[in-house]
Computed example of a mutant assay.
Amino acid sequence: MTSKLFRNIAIGLVSTALLTACSTSPTGRKQLVLLPDSQLNEMGVASFAEMKSSTPASGSTQATKNVQCVADRIIAVLPQEHRQQAWEVVLFNDEQVNAFALPGYKIGVYTGLLEVAQNQDQLAAVVGHEVGHVLARHSNERVSTQLATSQALALGYQLSGEDSATKAAIFQGLGIGAQIGIILPFSRTHESEADVIGLDLMAKAGFDPEESIKLWQNMSKKGASSTPEFLSTHPSHQTRMQDLNAAMAAPKQIYSSLKAANQAAKCY
């Protein structure tokens, strides 16, 4: 009787915590956010400082200027609460084809990306996407999801009787199932959502949103991952291009209006 009462109280407390931690992303999607944004910002600032200490910045003044220009255009169209922050942008001298944005308003671009993002619009697609992660609080949501999942499994383990080999095997399977069924799909949802947010941001900033498709065509030529999509944290290149095409109408209209008014971006 006591065990059953404890179990019901524990489940009730967890359920209440999850319900009261609900938030909404910029696209209207419900989110689980358990941590204060200030804590994620501190982590982002610390991570960025560590990256700067371990990876040198690019020595190319022109390339750095180009990246800064693209980032500044994106930042200028953000909601005020994000636009007024002191964003820091660094072009890292590293061959990996990647970029990132961290809580704490930090943006990093690797020089290797500039070999694939062949013009300002394609670079803007990447920067807009990464900034989209920050606007949508994806880091907080992912940490919260992992925390809630691990706590739920730990709670279930404690309430499911005495230890045994069978019990251990069952919960190991549940852990793998949670990774594939909850955490990875959330990551793919984050990537797809950041693509849509980034598409809107780049168009409002005066960059051609159709270049986002060409960017992923370039990425495909660079090499596709052999990991099946359902086991990956990212959608396949083909899925991304299809989703971007599906969301293209409104951003394309925004860009066309800016271009007609001679307000399109001119970074390089």
Rank of each mutant, 00 (worst) to 15 (best):
Phe6Met: 13
Asn8Thr: 14
Asn8Ile: 15
Ser15Met: 15
Ser25Lys: 09
Thr27Arg: 14
Lys30Met: 13
Gln31Thr: 10
Leu32Phe: 12
Pro36Lys: 10
Pro36Asp: 11
Ser38Leu: 09
Ser38Lys: 10
Gln39Ala: 14
Gln39Pro: 06
Asn41Phe: 13
Glu42Thr: 12
Met43Val: 11
Gly44Lys: 06
Val45Ala: 11
Val45Asp: 08
Lys52Ile: 04
Ser60Ile: 06
Thr61Gln: 11
Ala63His: 09
Thr64Asp: 12
Val70Phe: 00
Asp72Asn: 14
Pro79Gln: 09
Gln80Arg: 09
Glu81Gln: 13
His82Pro: 04
Arg83Trp: 08
Gln84Phe: 06
Gln84Val: 09
Val90Ile: 06
Phe92Cys: 02
Asp94Thr: 06
Asn98Val: 10
Val109Ser: 01
Ala117Ile: 08
Asn119Gly: 12
Glu130Val: 02
His133Tyr: 03
Val134Trp: 01
Leu135Glu: 07
Arg137Leu: 12
Thr149Arg: 04
Ser150Asp: 06
Gly156Cys: 09
Glu162Phe: 05
Lys167Ser: 10
Ala169His: 08
Leu174Thr: 07
Ile176Arg: 05
Gly177Ser: 04
Ala178Gln: 02
Gly181Arg: 06
Ser192His: 06
Gly198Glu: 07
Gly198Lys: 04
Ala205Gly: 07
Asp208Lys: 01
Glu211Met: 15
Glu211Trp: 00
Ile213Trp: 05
Gln217Met: 15
Ser220Ala: 14
Lys222Trp: 02
Lys222Phe: 02
Gly223Pro: 04
Pro228Met: 08
Glu229Tyr: 04
Leu231Asn: 01
His234Gly: 00
Gln238Met: 03
Arg240Phe: 04
Met241Thr: 00
Leu244Thr: 02
Ala247Leu: 08
Ala250Tyr: 04
Lys252Pro: 02
Gln253Pro: 09
Ile254Arg: 14
Tyr255Asp: 05
Tyr255Asn: 03
Tyr255Leu: 03
Ser257Gln: 15
Ala260Lys: 13
Ala261Asp: 15
Ala265His: 01
